[in-house]
Design a protein around this nucleic acid. Structure first.
Length: 428
DNA sequence: CCCCCCTTTCCTGTTT
DNA sequence: GAAACAGGAAAGGGGG
C-alpha cells in the first residue's frame, strides 16, 4: 500500500454554520429513557451540514466509541476535525458502507473498498493493478472518463468499474431528486443502527426541542453500560486530540462537557465503532464477572470462542496477493499498528512517533487502539493487555525491538517494513 | 486431518 | 496500588 492521501471528498460547511456550534434549527425530541438517542441525534445534528452519511456515522460512532473514560479527551471532535475523523474511521469500518453513499462523497477508503469488492467479485488479479487509485477519492473518481478508467484499471476491470460507478451515480442522483437529505440520513442511520442491534432511530422524533439534552444517567442491560449525558458544549477551537497529550491517562470527568458514554469501567473503552459489527455490550464489569466465573473452572489457555458471527476475511484492498501465505497484507497486528502510524489522517491521536527515523512509537490511547484491533479481528473483548502480549511476541521475531524503561513505547525491528520514510517515498 | 503461523487468552511475577 | 511489562502455557483459527 502506498501513502494514502487525506481524502478530500467530503464537503463540510464552515464552522460558523455548523449546527454543532449553534442550536439545531429543528430540535430532536428523544426518548427520555434512551440516552443513546442523544448520542445518535447529536451525530445527526452535527452531520446535517454535510450530505455525507459517513460523517454522521463517524460522528455517531466516534461519539459512542469514545467511551474509554480516561482514554478520551473531554472534547468532541470539532467540525474541523470531523473530516479527519471520518477518514480515520472509514479506514476501519469502511467495509461496504460506500454502497450507502453517493460516489461523489466517497472517501479514498470507500473507493478502495469499492475496487476491492470488484476485484474479489471478478477474481481479478489485484497485483496487476496500478496503485494510482490509492490517491483517489469519490469526486476524483467521478470525474474519470471511461478511457481513463480503462487506462488505470485495464480492459478487464476498467469497464466493469465504470459500469458499477455509473450504477451508483444513477442510484444517488435519483435519490437526490426525490428525497431530502434528512430522510436519507435517517434511512442510513437506521441501517447503521440495525447493525448495532439498537432500535434507536425509530424512536427519534423530529420536532421542536430546545435543550433537549439534559443531564441524565442511564444504565443499559443490567449495568452493562452506564451513560452520563451532559449538555452539549459549544465547541470552540479546541482540537479534538493533540499531540501534546503526553500519556494515555486522560481523565474523563463527568463535567467535561462531553457526551460521555462511559461503560462500567474507564478501562473498557468499548463502544464498537464499526457498524459492520454488533455493538459490544461487554463492560468491564461483565468481563470481570465472566473472568471470575471462569477462574473457577477454566484451565489455562485460550478458551473456545463464544460467538463469531462473521467470517474474518476482510473485504478491503488488503486482500491483494502477498507473499505471506497465511495472511494477506494488513491483517497482522504489527501492520495494523504501522498503518495507524503512517497515516496520520487516520490516526486520531491514538499513537504517535517518538522517533520517526528509528521507528520508535508510542501508544497514546492504548485501549482505543486495542479496541480498534479488536474490531478488525471481530473481537470485542480485545484489550491492550492482550494486544501487548502479541506485541511482545514480535520481539523474538525482530519485528519489534524492546524499548526499555518506557511505557507504551515500542520500536519497529529489522523484520518490519513499510514504515520507513524511504519506503514511503517521503524522502528526507 | 495434520501442521504451521499468528495470534488470543490467561496467568504469575516484576517493574515503573 | 495501579498500570504496564515480561513471558510461559495452551488453545483458536485460517491456510497449506
Amino acid at each position: 500500500m502506498g501513502a494514502w492521501p487525506v481524502s478530500g471528498g467530503i464537503p463540510l460547511n464552515s464552522p460558523e454554520s455548523s449546527p454543532l456550534l449553534q442550536p439545531a434549527p429543528t430540535g430532536i425530541v428523544l426518548e427520555q429513557d434512551n440516552p443513546l438517542h442523544h448520542t445518535v441525534a447529536r451525530a445527526v445534528i452535527s452531520a446535517m451540514s454535510s450530505p455525507c452519511l459517513s460523517s454522521i456515522l463517524t460522528n455517531a460512532n466516534i461519539t459512542m466509541y469514545q467511551t474509554g473514560g480516561h482514554d478520551v479527551p473531554p472534547q468532541l471532535p470539532s467540525i474541523n476535525t470531523l473530516q479527519i475523523s471520518n477518514s480515520a474511521y472509514n479506514s476501519n469500518i469502511s467495509g461496504q458502507w460506500y454502497r450507502e453513499i453517493s460516489p461523489h462523497f466517497w472517501t479514498a477508503d470507500n473507493v478502495l473498498d469499492w475496487i476491492s469488492d470488484h476485484v474479489e467479485g471478478t477474481k481479478f488479479d489485484a497485483s496487476t493493478l496500478s496503485l494510482a487509485y490509492c490517491a483517489m477519492d469519490g469526486p476524483a473518481l467521478c470525474q474519470m472518463s471511461r478511457e481513463q478508467m480503462i487506462g488505470l484499471f485495464g480492459t478487464q476491470l476498467g469497464p466493469h468499474l465504470q459500469q458499477s460507478l455509473q450504477d451508483h451515480k444513477t442510484k444517488y442522483e435519483l435519490q437526490s431528486l426525490s428525497g431530502p437529505e434528512l430522510s436519507e440520513t435517517c434511512q442510513l442511520l437506521d441501517n447503521f443502527l440495525d447493525n448495532l442491534n439498537f432500535p434507536l432511530l425509530s424512536t427519534i422524533r423530529i420536532g421542536q426541542g430546545e435543550g433537549f439534552v439534559t443531564k441524565k444517567e442511564f444504565d443499559y442491560r443490567d449495568d452493562c453500560i452506564s451513560l452520563n449525558l451532559e449538555p452539549m458544549p459549544s465547541l470552540g477551537d479546541t482540537e479534538y486530540l493533540s499531540d501534546n497529550q503526553s500519556d494515555s491517562e486522560y481523565s474523563s470527568s463527568s463535567n467535561s462537557g462531553m457526551f460521555d458514554l462511559s461503560l462500567g469501567s474507564p478501562e473498557s473503552g468499548s463502544g464498537e465503532s464499526d457498524p459492520e459489527f454488533s455493538f459490544p455490550l461487554i463492560s468491564k464489569a461483565n468481563i470481570k464477572t465472566e473472568k471470575e466465573e471462569c477462574r473457577l473452572k477454566r484451565p489455562r489457555g485460550r478458551p473456545p470462542k463464544v460467538s463469531r458471527e462473521h467470517g474474518s476475511s476482510s473485504s478491503s484492498i488488503y486482500g491483494s496477493p502477498k507473499k505471506n501465505k497465511h495472511a494477506p497484507r494488513g491483517t497482522h497486528l504489527w501492520e495494523f499498528i504501522r498503518d495507524i502510524l503512517i497515516h496520520p489522517e487516520k490516526n486520531q491521536g491514538l499513537m504517535k512517533w517518538e522517533d520517526r527515523r528509528e521507528g520508535v512509537f508510542k501508544f497514546l490511547k492504548s485501549e482505543a487502539v486495542a479496541q480498534m484491533w479488536g474490531q478488525k479481528k471481530k473481537n470485542s473483548s480485545m484489550t491492550y493487555e492482550k494486544l501487548s502480549r502479541a506485541m511482545r511476541y514480535y520481539y523474538k521475531r525482530e519485528i519489534l525491538e524492546r524499548v526499555d524503561g518506557r511505557r507504551l513505547v515500542y520500536k519497529f525491528g529489522k523484520n518490519s517494513s513499510g514504515w520507513k520514510m524511504e519506503e514511503l517515498g517521503m524522502g528526507m
